[in-house]
Amino acid sequence: MFRRLPEIETATQAVSFTIDGRPASARAGDSVAAALLANGVTACRTTPVSGAARGPYCMMGVCFDCLVTIDGTGNRQGCQVRVAPGMAVETQNGKREVER
């Protein structure tokens, strides 16, 4: 669980996006992974091997644990993509589907 330092709310712009269709709010400059954590979503997918839950771990693009579906494209590294207004972020279950 993560919270925003109080000063940030005034220092940055709010960004509206969705997590699994639910409205959510982040701040300009957030990566998708940071935006998920800021919204209380610590688990963003289940693995394609055992189905175990995973969440962001490294936040620098090396661990590939924060994979999510972004605007319909699966297996994107949430920590490497900036959240954008209107973005549709979806958590993932197991293996990626070939058509998304």
């Binding site: 669980m1 993560f2 919270r3 925003r4 330092l5 000063e7 940030i8 220092a11 940055t12 701040r27 400059g29 957030d30 990566s31 940071a34 954590l37 800021a38 610590t42 688990a43 963003c44 839950a53 995973r54 969440g55 962001p56 771990y57 490294c58 936040m59 620098m60 920590c79």
Partner: peptide
């Protein structure tokens, strides 16, 4: 989920002003 690298937490602080609660 909930276990992260300290470096990852530091990235969250630097980029987004996020700290654990």
């Amino acid at each position: 989920p909930g276990v992260l690298g300290a470096g990852a937490a530091q990235v969250l602080l630097k980029t987004s002003g996020l700290v654990p609660s």
